[in-house]
Amino acid sequence: MCGRIEFTLTERMQRALRDTLQIDAAWPEHQELRPTEQATFLTHSGTWTVQSGRWGLIPPGMDLQAAKKYATFNARIETVERSKSFKEAFRAGGRCVLPLSAFFEWPNKVKVRIARPDDRPLLAAGLWSQQDSSDGPLVSCTVITRPPTEDLTDVHDRMPALLLTKDLDTWLSAAPSQAKAIAMGSWRPGLLTVTPAS
């Protein structure tokens, strides 16, 4: 599972997003995010849009109180098409991308930080949804997970479905079978470092 993410975009990360995706935004700073907190994600419809929503998808027809009973902060790519919580977002234009500076795990109960050594952002596949509520639009998102690459098998049995820049369009707009394949296979071993975290 991916239960802690870091969103602290360095200047180099922000420059990479400007250069590769033409996104120039005033990015919020979150040292470490936990499920149900506000996460930043990107949607694409001609141009990129920076959005923010509850980390823990609220499925269509469900209100926030009901959603609190379920752990919807991760969606397994293997079952996303069949899941009652996630299948509608996956099929109906609800795919998104979460730019992260790192994510955290606890192998052998020791916290580690997993990030790129070249100080570039991680682009994680995600889903998002927007529900109407009495307090206005309720926006939420989730992180797609997959089995780990070979170099991370000792860290955890799951990892975020990280995407290379060249595969973003396929994740966001291709047919479900193609999107699933790219989420499972875009990322390669050897691109991340694992270091002790406080």
Rank of each mutant, 00 (worst) to 15 (best):
Q31R: 12
L33M: 08
T10N: 03
T8A: 14
C2H: 02
R4P: 01
E37I: 07
R4N: 07
A26V: 15
R12C: 04
L21S: 01
A16M: 07
L17P: 00
R18D: 10
E11A: 10
L42N: 01
P28C: 05
A25F: 12
R18N: 07
L9Y: 04
I23A: 02
I5F: 06
T10Y: 06
H44W: 14
T10P: 00
E37T: 08
Q31K: 10
F7E: 10
E37R: 05
D19G: 03
H30L: 12
L42M: 04
R4L: 14
G3T: 04
D24G: 03
F7Q: 15
R18C: 09
G46E: 07
T43E: 06
W27G: 02
G46I: 11
L33Q: 02
T36G: 01
L9I: 04
M13R: 02
I23S: 00
G3P: 00
M13F: 06
Q38V: 15
R4G: 04
L42V: 03
G46M: 09
F7S: 05
D24F: 07
E32P: 01
T36A: 05
E6T: 08
Q14W: 06
Q14V: 07
A39Q: 05
C2N: 00
A16G: 01
S45N: 13
I23E: 02
F41G: 00
R15K: 13
D19Y: 08
L21N: 00
G3D: 09
E37N: 05
S45K: 10
E32K: 03
H44T: 04
F41W: 08
Q22D: 13
A39L: 15
Q14R: 14
I5V: 15
E32D: 11
Q22M: 12
R12Y: 07
C2T: 04
F41P: 00
L9E: 02
R4F: 14
R18T: 08
I23C: 03
A39I: 15
E37K: 05
E6H: 08
T36S: 09
S45P: 02
G46L: 11
Q22N: 13
R15N: 11
T43A: 04
D19I: 06
R12N: 13
E37F: 12
R12P: 00
F7G: 02
A26T: 14
Q31A: 14
R12L: 09
R15T: 14
R4I: 09
F7M: 13
Q14M: 11
T36R: 08
G46F: 10
W27E: 06
Q31H: 12
P28L: 06
Q31P: 08
F7N: 04
W27S: 03
L42G: 01
Q31N: 11
G46A: 06
I5E: 01
P35K: 03
S45R: 10
S45C: 09
D19P: 00
H30V: 14
T8S: 13
T43I: 12
E29H: 10
T40V: 15
E29L: 13
L17F: 07
E37D: 10
Q14C: 07
D19R: 07
A16F: 14
Q38R: 14
Q38F: 09
D24M: 06
H44F: 15
D24Y: 06
A25G: 03
H44D: 04
E37W: 10
Q38H: 07
L21D: 02
R4V: 07
T20W: 11
